[in-house]
Design a protein around this nucleic acid. Sequence first.
DNA 1: TTAAATTCCTGTAAGC
DNA 2: TGCTTACAGGAATTTA
Length: 251
Amino acid sequence: MDCELRFPTMVRYPEPEVFARSVRGAHIVDARRRGKYIFLGLEGGATIVVHLGMSGQLRLVDPQTPFESHTHVVFGLDDGRQLRYRDPRRFGRLLYGTEPELIAMRALPDLGPEPIDPAFGAGDLYRRIHHRRAPLKALLLDQAAVAGIGNIYADESLYRARLRPDRRGNTVSKNAAVRLHQALRESLELGIANRGASVDTYRDAWGEIGGQQEQLLVYGRAGQPCFNCGRPLSLVRIAGRSTVFCRRCQH
DNA sequence: TTAAATTCCTGTAAGC
DNA sequence: TGCTTACAGGAATTTA
C-alpha cells in the first residue's frame, strides 16, 4: 500500500510523516467497526483508524477517477485501486497504531458498549444512565455511555421509546430503560438495513447514497405532523444539538 | 465526577 | 443579483 497525505493535519496520531512512513508497504488484512470508528487492520497488529466526523467519506475507486475536491488522503492499494479519504468540513480524523497504544496515548477515547451487541442488555443500559442527571439526549450522544449514537439515531430512538429528550437519566424507570434499549436496536438495525441515512453528504465506499433518510420518524421533521398523533413535532436545542420530538407522545 | 459551553470547519440556505 | 449571516454536527477541550 502507498499513502499520500494531501492535507496532513487530517492525521491526529502519530505525526503525519510518521503515519505515512508507517503505512507505506503495509498490507490491510481486515476491516471492522467500533462505535463511529473504522479500523483497518494491518499485518502485524497495527491499525489505521478512521473517523468520518460529519462529512468524511472513504471511497474505493479506480485511479483514473477524477479527484473530487477535499480529497485529503489517498491510499494506493496493492490491487491497483485507490482508497480515498475525502472530508469537506474536516471534522474527521485518521490515526495509526495498535489499539492498546492508541488508548494509552488518549488518541482513542473510552467507548461504551455497542447497542446492537447481543451481550448488551437493557439492565446494562439502565445502570449506565440511572445515576446521571444529564438529559437523555446528551447521554445517548455521550460515546462513553453508549457507543455509536449520533444526533439522528438519538432522536429516532427517543421517539420510538416514547421518552422526552430532556428527561433526566435519573428519572428513567427500568421499564423505560427496556423501551429505550429496544428502540436503540431498532433504530440502528433499520439504518443498517437501509445502508445509512444520506440526510446530508453520506455516501458508502462505492459512492452510493443510503435510504434511511426516507424512513426517519422525527429527525429533520420539525413542524411536520407526528406519525402517531398528528401534532406538529417540536424543535428544541439540547446538548448543543437540534432535537426534534413529539410533546404529546414522548414523556 | 459530571454537566454545560466552546471550538473547529465549510457548504448550503435564508434574509436583506 | 450579491452579500452577510445562521446553521448543520462529533468530540476534544475548557469552564463551572
